[in-house]
């Protein structure tokens, strides 16, 4: 199987020759930026650089996917949020203390939403990557979910307070913001994306499982209907309390955090959705060595997790040898467990 075939089969929870190594979020590092002369922040705003840097996930690290949307702020920039682009060694962020919207009526997509430099950069990069690597690996795009857009555009605190004080108004805002998710997702599909990551940060630290059900489950079901490629929902943190709901959403996969033990997570989702991710970023990939990375990969494979990869966008200072260890470990594990997965 090619990497692309392997990944797409795993999203359908069909048999594969080996577990795919998949990064639904960024695997860019400062050293890879040097290698292909595509440093941040420029690599988030220039399609050639973005494609060059993203391709290293396949050409250097040996993953079965290429994911060029390193940040979580491309569409928020196009929506008019105030940005802090930072430097090579740090992530660009939205200045959420300076929200752009207050009321549902404020939620409007600007006419240049899809032609804005920072959204266009992604669709152009996907076109480049599709042409160069489209037959070999799965090209994964990313469109932010309405809950995350709410944080960016309304501010975290005002948005959360609104959800407590006026759930109806919050739902109206989410419903309007979902248009950005759909439009941007469709643009990436048309550009050649095989699948889309859909981060929607209803994270375990601030939002309960029941909140997910009340505010997001139906919306996510609708997004699955509207976006005709496999969707990978990404939510950071401990999410076991909502995985049952997530498994009902129709999403192809859930990109899950290392705070959730693989075997417990697999039990909850019960083959209703593929799981991907789980390799810890700050403590393992960033701070430890290949042996510890290998152990975590094995834990996921032992639990029959469908696709293996980092839990979230990796720290930019992560070492290349740790990242290369993920596909190496997957191949070794399968060699030692020779029956097909």
């Amino acid at each position: 199987m090619t990497g692309r075939e392997r990944v797409l089969a795993a999203f359908r929870r069909e048999p594969v020759d080996r577990t795919p190594v998949c990064n639904p979020t960024s695997v860019a590092t400062v050293e890879l930026m040097d290698l292909v002369d595509a440093p941040f922040p420029e690599a988030n705003r220039d399609p050639e650089m973005m494609a060059r840097l993203a391709a290293t996930g396949y050409t250097e690290l040996g993953f079965d996917t290429i994911m060029p949307v390193f940040t979580i702020i491309q569409e928020s920039s196009a929506l008019g949020c105030k940005m802090q682009w930072e430097q090579k060694d740090n992530w660009p962020t939205v200045r959420m203390r300076e929200p752009i919207w207050v009321e549902p009526e404020d939620v409007k997509l600007p006419p240049d939403f899809l032609t804005h430099k920072d959204t266009r950069c992604v669709t152009d990069a996907i076109k480049i990557l599709k042409k160069q690597y489209g037959d070999e690996v799965a090209i994964i795009g990313k469109t932010m979910g309405p809950w995350t857009l709410g944080y960016h555009c309304f501010g975290v605190e005002p948005f959360l307070l609104m959800s407590l004080d006026n759930p109806g108004k919050t739902k109206l805002c989410l419903d309007r913001m979902k248009e950005a998710t759909i439009e941007y997702g469709m643009a990436q599909i048309e550009a050649g994306a095989d699948a889309l990551t859909l981060p929607d940060h209803a994270t375990g630290d601030l939002v309960s499982g029941e909140y997910y059900k009340e505010f997001l489950l139906d919306l996510h079901i609708e997004l699955v209907e509207k976006l005709p490629v496999p969707l990978i929902l990404h939510i950071c943190g401990r999410t076991l309390d909502r995985m049952d709901y997530i498994a009902q959403s129709g999403m192809a996969a859930f990109h899950y955090d290392s705070k959730n033990p693989p075997s417990e997570a697999m039990e909850v989702v019960d083959n209703r959705i593929a799981l991907v991710g789980n390799i810890n970023n700050p403590e393992t990939l960033f701070s430890k060595g290949p042996e510890e990375v290998r152990q975590e990969v094995y834990q996921n494979l032992d639990a029959k997790v469908n696709l293996v990869g980092p839990e979230c966008a990796i720290p930019l200072q992560t070492s290349i040898e740790n990242l290369k260890e993920i596909p190496k470990a997957v191949k070794d594990w399968h060699r030692d467990h020779s029956t097909p997965n």
């Binding site: 960024s26 060694d89 740090n90 992530w91 939205v94 995350t148 975290v156 960033f286 979230c312 966008a313």
Partner: peptide, 16 residues
């Protein structure tokens, strides 16, 4: 500080 730099945080965990 060097270790914390370059780690992507969820919006809810970012200093605003």
């Amino acid at each position: 500080m060097a270790a914390a730099r370059g780690q992507l945080l969820a919006p809810s965990a970012q200093k605003q």
